[in-house]
Write a protein that binds this DNA or RNA. Sequence first.
DNA 1: CTAATATGAATGAAGG
DNA 2: CCTTCATTCATATTAG
Lengths: 160, 160
Amino acid sequence: MDQEGASQSTSTSTEPVRSRWSPKPEQILILESIFNSGIVNPPKDETVRIRKMLEKFGAVGDANVFYWFQNRRSRSRRRQRQLQAATAAPATSGGDQHMTAMSMHQYPYSNSEIDLGFGSCINSSANYFLNGTTSSSQVSSFLLGLSSSSGVCETNGMEN
Amino acid sequence: MDQEGASQSTSTSTEPVRSRWSPKPEQILILESIFNSGIVNPPKDETVRIRKMLEKFGAVGDANVFYWFQNRRSRSRRRQRQLQAATAAPATSGGDQHMTAMSMHQYPYSNSEIDLGFGSCINSSANYFLNGTTSSSQVSSFLLGLSSSSGVCETNGMEN
DNA sequence: CTAATATGAATGAAGG
DNA sequence: CCTTCATTCATATTAG
């Protein structure tokens, strides 16, 4: 990720200028249009094409486009799942509802995705873990131990 | 693929029940060291040995190790190709530019490799600012092209 | 300023 | 090996 694009306009100072890609409104519009047109998982060539198109409105890389579609898909599915879960599981019993409908298609020419109305859903999932300081004292032993490797052991049969 | 069940918070219910394995920093260090030592595709025996080693710093299964190396290999190759493509195709100008087949697959580089001390001299600082007016004719053209089925409008209540 | 949310990016896990 | 999904991390933006 080396495409700088986030140009902050006089915000809090001390910005390392290492921002992530921020799609421009036009880019978002294009991406959403493509997504809503049925192309929810564009192949490589399509991704490149889309990137080229987006590049006219700001710096963007193939990876950004790829990430965008991945996140979009995931997000849509999660929203759907939560919505369905809330709809199909009001409060009748303490049972657990299982959903094992995963229709994976390589190329979604036949739009199997339901049209979603985004923008009015509030999702609350705030959870984060803290990373404790771990002492890496024993690791040094291992590192020192494997300093004797010189042969590149590749192509081995590990079929289970 | 299914080599063994990944050990995950067994007994002693004092863990926040992690869904997937999260390698500890020491484990990552060991794994990376091994990988950089040339062992990029360890056989079954080696995998087991590595797992035993890693287990000293946290619960881990053979499958986790296997997956880790697999993903690591894939990621490395991907970075290679992506980097090569980026080096040979510095194009971020506003206008029509023909680019050769840029084979990009998935996410780009991320981790800091131990060796490999050269940096890419790509300087794509061609950042164009669109003035506040979001009236881009090109976007409109594109949108008009794919207006077919789904509503492209957010917060829409398509009835009738 | 802090908390909550939105979203780009990274990675473990599987499927083919 | 390849692609893809699900989960998590990190950061930007916004609300309080």
